[in-house]
């Protein structure tokens, strides 16, 4: 039960964090009426996840290790690109808001932007959803005796993740608007940098790209990748106890570049 709880909590929390940021952004810009579009994106992804898992179960087939890694790696890179777009798009909106930013804003969302935000919710859910669902199905099948308990653990994990997401959403209201934009922007860029690093590692495991250089250090004895904390940090910020030089350089180049662009866009400073 603890196992399924931790898996669904970890994967669910990442989904919840992204949704909380997107919903928080819409709320702060006077676009609550568009919450529905985000939930439609989320609902579609949940439906598609259930569909895919159902087909795989019904045909008793499994994604082979290599195919799964290729799928995960590709979708991680796509997610990193989408998140980058999101954070810079939000920043540009903030720039155009000027001094109104201090009190709250009302931004008209173009149809295309809204579609993209719903797509972002969709991609966040589908990315973690299929992997987690397959994993839970495999685990529940193993021992019929404790299957109920196993599913309960998974359900509670998702429920706690949702509660944490709600806490982030509510908590974000405590921040003044400009801090909200800055903090969420930086958080999203860090998540995206981790996805970039993880995505490349997955593509290497899928043998689609060569290994990106030697591994200069190994921190597994300090923080094991198989520990609960290691797994959480791996999912959230791309923690790897022994990353390759390629992963290290890409992570920091992306993060430094992203933060550089983010802060030089400087809308918030212009408003003060």
């Amino acid at each position: 039960m603890l196992f399924s709880f931790l898996v669904s909590l970890r994967e669910g929390f990442e989904i919840a964090l992204i949704l909380a940021i997107v919903l928080g952004y819409l709320a702060r810009t006077g676009n609550r009426r568009h919450f529905r579009d985000i939930w439609v994106g989320t609902g579609l992804a949940v439906a598609l996840t259930i569909g895919v898992v159902f087909v795989l179960q019904a045909t008793a087939s499994e994604l082979s290790g290599t195919a799964r890694e290729a799928f995960e790696g590709t979708i991680m890179l796509a997610a990193a690109a989408t998140l980058t777009w999101m954070v810079l798009w939000m920043r540009r909106q903030a720039v155009s808001l000027g001094r109104d930013l201090r009190t709250g804003v009302d931004v008209a969302l173009a149809r295309g932007s809204l579609f993209a935000l719903a797509g972002l919710a969709f991609s966040a859910v589908i990315r973690e959803g299929i992997e987690t669902a397959l994993f839970l199905f495999a685990g529940a099948r193993a021992s019929a005796g404790s299957a109920g308990e196993f599913w309960a653990g998974g359900a509670i994990g998702f429920a706690v993740a949702a509660a944490l997401g709600y806490a982030v959403y509510r908590g974000s209201h405590l921040l003044p608007v400009r801090q909200f934009f800055t903090v969420t922007g930086v958080v999203v860029l860090v998540i995206a940098a981790g996805l970039l690093s993880n995505g490349l590692a997955e593509l290497h495991e899928a043998q689609l790209i060569p290994q990106l250089g030697p591994r200069p250090w190994d921190m597994d004895a300090v923080l094991s990748i198989s520990s609960t904390a290691g797994q959480f940090l791996h999912a959230l910020v791309g923690y790897d106890p022994a990353p390759t030089w390629g992963q290290i350089v890409l992570f920091w180049t992306y993060l430094a570049g992203g933060l550089g662009v983010f802060f030089t866009m400087g809308g918030v400073r212009a408003s003060s």
Binding site: V7, G139, A142, A201, D220, A221, S226
Partner: peptide
């Protein structure tokens, strides 16, 4: 076969200890 253990990569030349 349903064994509850998530995939861990053991890089070349390294040792991994997993609970």
């Amino acid at each position: 076969d349903g064994t509850r253990f998530e995939e861990v990569v053991i890089p070349a030349g390294k040792v991994r200890r997993m609970a």
